[in-house]
Design a protein around this nucleic acid. Structure first.
Lengths: 219, 219
DNA sequence: TTGCCATGTGACCAGCCGGTCACACGGCGC
DNA sequence: GCGCCGTGTGACCGGCTGGTCACATGGCAA
């Protein structure tokens, strides 16, 4: 490994540690350079300044995150929309639960929009939208994006809130027992989602979409 | 009005304007003093520094907020728990919708906990808990605090998120139509709450609580 | 060997921050 | 008249910030 690569790694890891410990407000050239044990000039040379460093770091994060994480793998065909949505929500909670850094970044996205945070948020929105559109196509009779949106937003908020408060409406935000309750609550709320289209209705729908009309389905 | 009172008002209003325009990160002695058109020394004299100013401002805010806002007034006895919860959620959305400053403060509470933000958050938690405990006592068979917590957290997140993103799961966060959808979604999700205790069951419950046993209710 | 270029360092700059201080004005009582 | 005190101002301080620059070292190629 070249000397430069090693230095770049040190800087990237220092950045992550700094975000984890001090939040995005504590991220400055001086602090990161000092933590990396390196002159800040190198950050300008190798990453073209702080925004470039952040972008580089996020590019690297994306590589091993968000692979199939968001959608709970691709066993789509075998499960109901409700089950898929539940596992998506669980996946989001887990992803946030295991990374202090990620939580800090998402708090930051809530406060500030700039050249670094915008692409991140937009990527997420695009991925989430493609998921919800698929779910929406499998159900009938209710506003699935809005209902799931509230539940997803809810668990995100609760995860972020855990940093500064220990309880929400009396339910503990830190530790297993609170999240077991939230998980059960999610299951129950998901029961309010519109019912899935039956396989027969799905086939009919496809037929209509293909322009073949709706009459060729066996009565 | 004394000269000092007028100056204090200027400072307090400058603080609010600064929070609204620049968020909590943009709040510093220099910026507030400059916006108020006043020497920062006066902030130290009259409010004992920035934390004192923030506390004074929040004390003033609380006076005309959170009166009965949170609970949607006190027509409790006449309505079902589900209706009360829905109106509480609507009240929260309205309160956040009409004040950019309040939204900034709540974003700040999410990121930082200190001598100023802690009392604020704790007050809110206490008020919310007393509300939810009442609701919990009126229903049976499900984890009401956890379910309502997710919904409340959800609308809070969506309100805060509107600053930096225009959509969430494809649903617009700015403008009326998105929020009409969220309102309908809330109504539907609330349908998943456990059913209210009947009056008769309530009387029975009270009887048990009072130690009189459960047998004296007319069959 | 000579010289070049990548790597790395520390000093230096202007600008902003919070915080304090000395001082000016002006009404009000003695 | 005099002096006091509430109100207000601007200058000043040390410390930190992001950003740039000159310079040292050391490996590699001609």
């Amino acid at each position: 490994m070249s000397s430069r690569e090693r230095t770049e790694r040190q800087i990237l890891e220092a950045l992550e540690a700094q975000i984890r410990d001090c939040g995005m407000n504590g991220v400055g050239i001086n602090a990161v350079a000092k933590r990396a044990g390196v002159s800040k000039e190198l950050i300008y040379r190798y990453f073209d300044g702080m925004p470039g460093l952040l972008l580089a770091w996020m590019r690297e994060q994306d590589f091993w995150t968000s692979r199939g994480d968001l959608l709970g793998s691709d066993e789509s065909s075998a499960r109901t929309p409700a089950a898929l949505i539940l596992s998506m929500l669980r996946g989001q909670v887990e992803a946030l639960a295991k990374s202090d850094t990620l939580r800090e970044v998402r708090r930051w996205e809530l406060v500030e929009r700039n050249e670094v945070s915008a692409p991140l948020a937009d990527r997420r929105e695009r991925a989430a939208r493609s998921f919800i559109d698929r779910m929406d196509g499998l159900t009938d009779g209710g506003d699935v994006p809005a209902m799931v949106g509230i539940m997803l937003a809810g668990v995100l908020y609760l995860m972020l809130r855990a940093k500064t408060e220990s309880h929400f409406l009396g339910v503990p935000l830190r530790g297993e027992e609170g999240w077991a309750r939230y998980d059960a609550a999610l299951e129950r709320l998901i029961g309010a989602l519109p019912p899935p289209l039956l396989e027969s209705s799905l086939r009919e729908l496809e037929a209509v979409r293909d322009g073949r009309g709706a009459g060729d389905r066996p009565a």
